[in-house]
């Protein structure tokens, strides 16, 4: 058995999600190799070689990978796929874009968002917004998998010493090109890696109120900020704050849900948090059904008081 992990990186460093994928590959068993497809990405390849559990890094460096376009990334994986029984990527925007392309080019099924490895052919994955867990067995010779990061502990970033092998980079597909990026700037921890998340919903009423009320709490706790779909749709915060079935999946030690009702689509993204706190003025809000500690109160009184007393 041999696993190929598709690294996610920013050319200079590995994205944290890749460390969780490496753990999933280790759980499957056999060699774990990591493919770094980038442009001037030697630092990312070196970083991959130091992750515990990795025995080889394939480094493809070329202009086609300068903007991490899915078409080129998938072609690169396919060019290097021979001999691998499992091809894994993170269930992130990048991994979700690349992995199904790889699967189709190899004529293999993909199993999305695995949360558990039963054996080399069998995996558990949530369906219906996490309301059911399916145990799925693949009859394909190669398994293409995306991995839910919160379900696998991160592999140690350093301590390993894999060899780095240079492989030829593919040519640009010619069908897609990068125009621009609008990156959300934040000094806060990344949502999917944060220990504490302060998350706000429609109850905040506006972007200004969201910031005015939640920022001091997040500052006090060193927390990341998240949001419901309603808060994102209403423009309080950027899209990448959305937690849920169709947003980010998080599992921090503490998730504080403020002014949100607890729709199933939202719960799907945060119900694996260790401790959940809900602050809502409606005592019947479904969020209280999953909260360890519920406070029925007006958030505009309770949150400032919480900040003052912490």
């Amino acid at each position: 058995m041999a696993n190929l992990v598709i690294a996610e990186h920013d050319q200079g460093s590995l994205k944290a999600a890749t460390l969780n994928v490496i753990s999933a590959a280790v759980a499957i068993g056999g060699d774990v190799h990591v493919l770094v497809a980038g442009h001037n990405a030697a630092a990312a390849a070196t970083a991959a070689s130091q992750v515990v559990g990795v025995s080889k890094v394939l480094h493809a460096d070329g202009a086609a990978h300068a903007n991490l376009l899915s078409e080129n990334a998938a072609a690169q994986v396919v060019a290097n796929a021979s001999g691998y029984t499992h091809i894994l990527a993170a269930a992130t925007a990048y991994g979700k874009s690349v992995a199904p392309r790889v699967a189709a080019l190899l004529d293999k099924a993909q199993i999305s968002d695995i949360i558990k490895v039963i054996d080399a052919d069998t995996f558990v994955r949530p369906i219906y917004a996490g309301n059911a867990y399916a145990t799925v067995k693949s009859s394909d010779s190669v398994k293409v998998l995306t991995v839910r990061g919160t379900a696998f502990a991160a592999a140690a970033k350093t301590g390993g010493s894999a060899t780095v092998e240079t492989v030829a980079a593919v040519a640009d597909s010619g069908v897609a090109s990068f125009v621009s990026a609008e990156v959300t700037k934040s000094e806060r921890p990344e949502l999917t890696a944060a220990k504490i998340i302060v998350s706000g919903g429609r109850g905040l009423g506006s972007g200004d109120k969201y910031r005015e009320v939640l920022t001091p709490l997040a500052d006090k706790l060193g927390a990341a900020l998240g949001a419901s779909r309603a808060a994102v749709d209403a423009g309080y915060v950027p899209n990448d704050y959305q937690v849920g079935q169709t947003g980010k999946i998080v599992a921090p030690d503490l998730y504080i849900a403020i002014g949100m009702s607890g729709a199933i689509q939202h719960l799907a993204g945060m119900k694996d948090s260790k401790v959940i706190v809900a602050i809502n003025k409606d005592a019947d809000a479904p969020i209280f059904g999953v909260a360890d500690y519920g406070l029925v109160a007006d958030l505009f009184d309770a949150v400032p008081e919480l900040v003052a007393k912490l």
Binding site: A132, Y133, S138, L254, K309
Partner: peptide, 29 residues
């Protein structure tokens, strides 16, 4: 290509408590 061997309920969260006020919440946390 894929066979679903079984489908399970996800683990249920323990029912939590409602706290009386902010001070009680901080104490619990």
């Amino acid at each position: 290509r894929l066979t679903t061997l079984r489908v399970d309920e996800p683990p249920k969260r323990q029912g939590g408590v409602k706290v009386a006020d902010v001070a009680a919440l901080i104490e619990k946390l």
